[in-house]
Amino acid sequence: MFKYLVAVLVLVFGAVIWMYFSVGVPVLYSEKNVTVRSVHRMGNLEQPLSRIYISAFYFIPKNKEENIHNEWQKLLHKKLDALVRFHTVQLQGASSILYEIYPEPIIGNLDNLAYDTSITQHGNPAALRRIVPEIESRVLAKDGDLYRADFDHVPPDAYHVLVIMYEGVGSTGGDNVALISRIFLSDIEYAAVSESLLAHEFYHTLGLPDAYTIPEGIATSADIMGLGRYRPIGQTFISQKMLQELGL
């Protein structure tokens, strides 16, 4: 009989313990499937953009050496810093940018006519075609005449982008390379929107297309790829549609 009495007491105190741990105690909901988003290049899921590394250059045609901007490095720093801030906000912290500026202006092997194109309204693709191979062979290749070991810091897992401030006309962006005229970055005429113009070209390197009609140039979007490239960097944005294309 004693054991039944003990059993009753165990049940009673068991019930109290059950009450303590169960009745009125909140049960937390937890989801089984958690969505993991990864940023990638538009149209290429295999190319992650969680880390972007920019190698920035100031490129001057041989015959324009006298036009070298006195504070080009400071100017480039300022514009790239603005780009980093903008990118951090727009990509919601899912992608980061590190940049390094080549410490010396690069004097081209050719005159400006060899790099420039007469049509600058829609970028300067001709300049890209000539300047990029020259930078690659002279600066990035280890046997190049301007190769510097202290500049070769590209992390292996980073998406590598070349940003070129060009002492000439026009701007353009494509696979891994963005080029912008120094005039857009330094002249007072473009002061309010210079950083947005740089960002516009930079986002081409991530695969984002222009959001305006060609050749009319009428914006089809208000974001950085359209009308927003003409708004101050603090007031422009990447549209939700473009962000979705980047995996966000």
Binding site: A219, T220, L227
Partner: peptide
């Protein structure tokens, strides 16, 4: 609100 005079654009294709 910025001091620069803003440029005028053709926005005929924008939903606004």
């Amino acid at each position: 609100r910025l001091p620069d005079v803003p440029e005028l654009f053709n926005v005929s294709l924008l939903p606004k």
